[in-house]
Amino acid sequence: MSVILKKPLSLTDKKFHYCPGCTHGVIHRLIAEIIDEYDIREQTIGIAPVGCSVFLDWYFNFDIIQAAHGRAPAVATGVKRVLTENVVFTYQGDGDLASIGIAELIHAAARGENITIVFINNACYGMTGGQMAPTTLEKQITTTTPYGRDHKTSGSPFFVPELLTNMHGVGFLSRRAINNPKNIVRTKKSLKTAFKVQMEGLGFSLVEILSICPVNWGMDPQKSMQWLEDNIIPHYPLGDIKMPDFDV
């Protein structure tokens, strides 16, 4: 009998606490698979954000540091400058990364810190109960935009990887989605490229992953996926935005 599929070594046995239909679990698994495939579990250090994925340590079977809200790229900078041979990544949501932590993100990119950022964009604050995020779409209803987001009073959604394209020290930028198997495979490939860029010392890498939040969107998982395809993906174009000159 041969094993054809098993849980990655980089995942623990703990069951995910995430809401039904949440896509964090899929993305966690992709990261764990990549770390196994590169055989870097013992040198990887993950930085957990504040948000739903604050308990990264429960699920990843390697060293984790939990950071203050938005500060993961600064914490990762401190770690990576000390442990230059280790692989350091942050895992951040759209509130953590694009709102309170946008300064830390942009300057880590500007310095070309040799770290990887996994950016989960589900267009709302998950943990605190579905408030507006910087990436919330215009007219999207959240608990703090009950009449729909209006750019005149609450700003416009913005494009995170595109902000970083002209920075010298940035090695790889990509935006993917996890709405279907094809896109999940592409997401994994982008994540794999991002980690490879770091391992090759080619600078800062970031993958934005468009995701869903069924509970806070008030839809079942299937409708959520549909809403992601009909609204979020058309707004945030998928693809590699800045690429290294190798293929993984």
Binding site: I65, V75, V79, R81, V82, E104
Partner: peptide, 22 residues
Amino acid sequence: VFIQAESEIAAINMVYGAAAAG
């Protein structure tokens, strides 16, 4: 290693990371 951070907030969190790394 010297870094002029983007803010005091970033600086203290770099300290947090480096201290965590030993």
